[in-house]
Write a protein that binds this DNA or RNA. Structure first.
Length: 807
RNA sequence: GCCGAAGUGGCGGAACGGCAGACGCGCCGCACUCAAAAUGCGGUGGGCAUUGCCCGUGUGGGUUCGAAUCCCACCUUCGGCACCA
């Protein structure tokens, strides 16, 4: 009998059998214990699956397989997020139509995923570029539009000159395009937005109750950036032109205001400028617009006087109004009160512009010297603040806000870092935004019955940089009739952000492809959602995961979903690096799994990646360590094949070891600690191989079952060899009996003054007195005690005895 | 600057108040072999040493009978955000 492990022979054979037996498929309507095991919707890149994807999917698949063996009806779907700039940019570069490219890539991805041996429910596979799918993506847009949650406005937006489209705030990373790393510019454009800010509080407050990796919750908290403060209104004195509202978190420093600053795009910036100052202001605003790059970081402070003044609401003093680009247009009201004494940016600006600095908060004892930098510490009391002198900062914040409310020049207010989600893209490869512009009726949503608005087939898909989508140059697409009045109308030519496609895919999976008359079947949604487990990358903390929550909140409020939060549990897996760097095509360090599959098979590849380090931390890929896993599976294979047909039951003296490994592996798999689960299996395999008595069938079967989630093909093969019925993956995962874990003897560490001096083997559960008596008699203990008095004895039953001497 | 995570052998990592370095890689020795590969068995933190002992988890303090683990301060690295008033 050949006893060599040959994955290349085993793996295709079982994959074919699984396919035939439909082991990944679930009876969605009839399932007794539904468990939705979700992993992230992959973008099928031209390079194919890389080991980072394999790592991510394997960890999630192990979880699904464990749950399946625990008796759950696991639904583990897979699909392809194939719309979007990434696919489109690759298509442009290769000179292939994205449709063609996506078909190739999807096929390749699926081939690789099948080789990996995931228990995917392939009958539900989704493709976001399929009109049968994006019809409903457009439907979601319409529902939000009807609810007033999708709106058009002109605003300063992020423009990527390389991708030739606008981007959402979340897609700008340190001032650069998330996709192509080009520095992003600011442009004032009229665009479609989703009103995600309407849900800012809920997005933030619900986080407390979510079972999610902390790292993601923190990132979302920071991104939402809720800030409690006070809105204050200043009247413009000269020329008399209405009012300027500012937002501040430091109303206590109101007496320290020496000027007001407006963002260059503030509506009053030009309006209030005096005739004398107007040319300068115009020049500055124009320059700022040209220079302004989103998130370009701190620069030297510049600005200009408007010649206008505002009245201080309490002192009535005139305050000069300036325009400066250090004030962000998109945050708060686009205007700030300048408190150079207590804000570092205002201080730098005051220095640059020669504006006065007043101290209104002093630490105690009060230091009186001139301020050399802003005093931003909130520890201290007010000075130079009229009736508020001597008040502590926290109290003064309240008192001055209360005064503002009484006198009608302000109120407590909350602002957010989160902005509305810009969803228009001036690109070709996406779902067209289902809206038409009618001269008579204005903006009209495409009626539901007319969906999908098909993306027209066109060879001219390269964006021209005109600020319009390539769709704008297809007259047959643009020219249409108004669905309301039947008159001539133009279609919206922008497509929607790819993140809209991926913000609801998991709602569709159970219903796809059978349900065609609505996006998702309410019964299936009620049965399978929210998702029980979602495992994915942390890079989506403020993109996909935030957008998705928003879409579900909105659909919930509109009555389409019975829940608001889509994911009960989310776990962020780690990242696989190569040579310490993130894998990327530009670095040329991308490792694909095909060579590993060819040489070692899927099981070794799976185990190797899981053994690299803690799943939730990731690790650095190097092909050095893979041999160890290969050897382990060889030994395991030989152990099982060679010991077949031995005694049935585990001998009583070996039961504790058996139950211990069941507990270790079970607990570790549950906690996603796959590296230590594998280590435990390695130890147990070595133990069975080296033990005097040959392994019993019970022990071998248990070992095989424990292995099944991690190495599904090998486990299936060994299970069959042991005479088990197909399939190992529908067997119950082993459980342990805590009573069996109790060992008969224990090794107690004997310490003298906290240092290990000896070990004693004692009957389990021995009392302190008997252990101490034996320990005191040990020569090693006597030697270190050197006749000193024993001050106390610390005893941890079955583990440790520490004799503390008086010296 | 702010937020987060992490610093343990030659390397990946384990232990997360109680025997530091599980498991694996690499390396060394032995067996098998004409030989090599493969495989198996043993060893492998550093120092001193004849049983044994001392030192050792980024640095400095602290709590404790006992700290890699808890607390305080600092250093370094890696992520994320960054003129957010």
């Amino acid at each position: 009998m050949d006893e060599t492990y040959r994955p290349q022979e085993i793996e295709p054979r079982w994959q074919a059998r699984w396919r035939a037996a439909k082991v990944g498929e679930v009876d969605l309507h009839g399932a007794q214990r539904p468990y939705y095991n979700l992993m992230m919707f992959p973008y099928p890149s031209a390079e194919g699956l890389h080991v980072g994807n394999v790592f991510a999917f394997t960890g999630a698949d192990i979880h699904g397989r464990l749950r399946a063996m625990q008796g759950y009806d696991v639904f583990e779907p897979m699909g392809f997020d194939a719309f979007g700039i990434h696919s489109e940019n690759t298509a442009i570069r290769l000179g292939i139509h994205p449709k063609e490219l996506v078909a190739q890539n999807t096929q390749n991805f699926r081939r690789q995923l099948e080789r990996l041996g995931g228990r995917f429910a392939w009958s539900h596979v989704l493709d976001s570029t399929d009109p049968a799918y994006y019809r409903w993506t457009q439907w979601i847009f319409l529902k939000l539009f009807e609810a007033g949650l999708a709106y058009r406005k002109e605003a300063p937006v992020n423009w990527c000159p390389s991708c030739r489209t606008v981007l959402a705030d979340e897609q700008v990373i340190s001032g650069r395009c998330e996709r192509c790393d080009t520095v992003v510019e600011q442009r004032n454009l009229e665009q479609w937005f989703f009103k995600i800010t309407a849900y800012a509080d809920q997005l933030l407050d619900d986080l407390a109750d979510l079972d999610w990796s902390e790292v993601i919750k923190t990132a979302q908290t920071n991104w939402i950036g809720r800030s409690q403060g006070t809105a204050l209104t200043f009247s413009v004195l000269e020329p008399a032109h209405g009012q300027i509202e500012v937002f501040t978190t430091r109303p206590d420093t109101l007496y320290g205001v020496t000027f007001l600053t407006l963002a260059p795009s503030h509506p009053l910036a030009l309006a209030i400028a005096s005739a004398q100052c107007r040319p300068e202001v115009e020049r500055y605003i124009a320059e700022a617009a040209r220079r302004e790059e989103a998130g370009s970081g701190e620069r030297a402070k510049t600005g200009v006087q408007t010649g206008a003044f505002a009245r201080h609401p309490l002192t009535q003093a005139p305050l000069p109004i300036l325009v400066a680009d250090y004030v962000l247009a998109g945050y708060g009201t686009g205007a700030v009160m300048g408190v150079p004494g207590h804000d570092q940016r205002d201080f730098a600006f005051a220095q640059a512009m020669g504006l006065p600095v007043t101290r209104v908060v002093a630490a105690s004892p009060p230091d009186q010297g001139p301020l050399l930098e802003a005093y931003t510490d909130e520890a201290g009391v007010l000075v130079n603040s009229g009736p508020y002198d001597g008040m502590r900062v926290a109290d003064a914040k309240q008192a001055i806000t209360a005064r503002a409310e009484e006198d009608g020049f302000g109120r407590a207010e909350t602002t957010y870092h989160l902005r509305d989600w810009l969803i228009s893209r001036q690109r070709y490869w996406g779902p067209p935004i289902p809206v038409v512009y009618c001269e008579a009726c204005g903006v009209v949503g495409v009626p539901e019955a007319e969906l999908p608005v098909l993306l027209p087939e066109s060879e001219d898909f390269v964006p021209q940089g005109t600020g319009a989508s390539p769709l704008a140059s297809i007259p047959d697409f643009v020219n249409t009739r108004c669905p309301r009045c039947g008159g001539p109308a133009r279609r919206e030519t922008d497509v929607s952000d790819n993140f809209l496609c991926s913000s609801w895919y998991f709602l569709r999976y159970p219903s796809h492809p059978a349900v065609t008359d609505r996006p998702f079947d309410p019964d299936l949604v009620a049965k399978w959602l929210p998702v029980d487990s979602y495992i994915g990358g942390r890079e989506h903390a403020v993109l996909h995961l935030l957008y998705t929550r928003f879409i579900c909140f909105a659909l919930h409020d509109l009555g389409w979903l019975p829940f608001a939060e889509p994911f009960r549990r989310f776990r962020a897996h780690g990242t696989i690096t190569k040579g310490g760097a993130k894998m990327s095509k530009s670095r040329g360090n991308v490792v694909t799994p095909d060579a590993l599959f060819d040489r070692y098979g899927a099981d070794v590849t799976r185990l190797y990646l899981m053994f690299l380090g803690p799943y939730q931390e990731g690790g650095d890929y190097s092909d050095r360590n893979i041999e160890g896993v290969w050897r382990f599976l060889q030994r395991l294979y030989q152990l099982v094949t060679a010991s077949r047909g031995g005694v049935e039951n585990c001998q009583p003296q070996h039961l504790a070891d058996l139950h211990r490994v069941v507990k270790r592996v079970g607990d570790d798999l549950e906690a996603l600690k796959y590296n230590t689960a594998i280590a435990a299996l390695m130890e147990y395999t070595t133990y069975l191989r080296q033990r005097q008595e040959p392994a019993s069938q019970q022990e071998l079967r248990t070992l095989t079952l424990l292995l099944a989630p991690l190495a599904p093909h090998l486990a299936e093969e060994l299970w069959a060899k042991l005479g088990g019925a197909f399939s190992v993956h529908s067997q119950a995962f082993p459980t342990y009996d805590p009573a069996q874990l109790v060992a008969r003897t224990a090794t107690v560490v004997v310490q003298v003054d906290g240092r290990v001096r000896d070990r004693l083997t004692v009957p389990a559960g021995s009392g302190q007195q008997e252990v101490a008596d034996r320990a005191m008699a040990l020569p090693s203990v006597q030697k270190h005690l050197q006749g000193a008095q024993v001050e106390r004895v610390v005893f941890v039953p079955d583990r440790l005895l520490n004799i503390v001497s008086a010296s």
